[in-house]
Design a protein around this nucleic acid. Structure first.
Ligand SMILES: [Mn+2]
Ligand SMILES: [Mn+2]
Ligand SMILES: [Zn+2]
Ligand SMILES: [Zn+2]
Lengths: 149, 149
DNA sequence: GTGGTAACAGATACTTGGGCTCAATAAGGA
DNA sequence: TCCTTATTGAGCCCAAGTATCTGTTACCAC
């Protein structure tokens, strides 16, 4: 029996989220959970794969899909069209993405729902969902420029 | 000299848009403009490629990128993540996408700009852009269901 | 604990949607 | 017409997955 490494509480939570849905706790999933829990930024599938060189490629992609499905990860669409993944608060939310440093901040309150409902109504549409990403410059990047200016 | 086919006014417009930016009018670009001008729905890169079997693959992708850059085409993100292209009104706009029949309707007035500015301000972000797709069911699909119900 | 079974992992091959390079060609201004 | 430069297309490469199949493992029942 291999000595089981101690996992971070966040990693444990991720595995619990899977267990709740009936998924088994396996060694590869433990490894994925541990790595994902340590990320403080969004990352690509390829980056995750490089952080887990021991895992099969298919397993990495399967895990990504699984974690998006159970709500542990969310997809983040960058302005250039690249798709990244990020630890997620559960539920519907959007992102403020800094085009300079790349940091992403979650927008939990979805303030645009009302506007969207009105607009949809005007066009005879029955609203069922939406996808929104917001791009700009974060506080840090702005203040850095202010100093150097 | 090959007999030059008469082009639709819309196709001519597309070529003019390219000329204005200093791009040359070539036979492949004429072909692309003609096909693109005839689409009344969004289409994938692959579909465009099949409509232009004589063109090199790279040329098709280059043309797509070019036409997006000059504002002739816009990218449309379907709910399943697939990327489509569509003739575009110039300038910033969004789409109402019917999840049933797939039709896309342009939203020209961007009503969410104000809300987004406020939200960004609250987070210290300087807003520079956003990406929004709205999903639902169109008037036609709704009324069809109402009849059969 | 053991055993059985369904879930899972990994290897491998395939697909989709592009991008890069480079030699050959063609557009369009002089 | 000539020259320069943009453009094309072949062929290769890459990212991001998916499908299939075989061997392994988690977990539950005993
Ligand atoms: Mn998120
Ligand atoms: Mn559009
Ligand atoms: Zn920033
Ligand atoms: Zn519809």
């Amino acid at each position: 029996m291999a000595t089981r490494k101690r996992m971070s509480p966040l990693a444990e939570q991720i595995l619990e989220a899977l267990e709740e849905r009936g998924y088994r706790t396996t060694e590869p999933r433990r490894a994925v959970a541990q790595v994902v829990a340590n990320q403080d930024r969004h990352f690509t599938a390829e980056e995750l794969r490089q952080m887990l060189p021991g895992l099969g490629r298919a397993t990495v992609f399967r895990s990504l899909k699984l974690l998006v499905d159970v709500g542990v990860l969310c997809r983040v669409l960058l302005e250039d069209g690249a798709l990244h993944y990020q630890m997620s608060l559960r539920g519907h939310h959007h992102h403020l993405l800094c085009v300079e440093c790349g940091i992403s901040q979650d927008l939990t309150g979805c303030d645009i729902e009302d506007v969207l409902t009105q607009t949809s109504d005007r066009h005879g549409f029955e609203l069922s969902g939406h996808w929104l990403e917001v791009y700009g410059r974060c506080r840090d990047c702005r203040s850095k420029e202010a100093v150097s200016a």
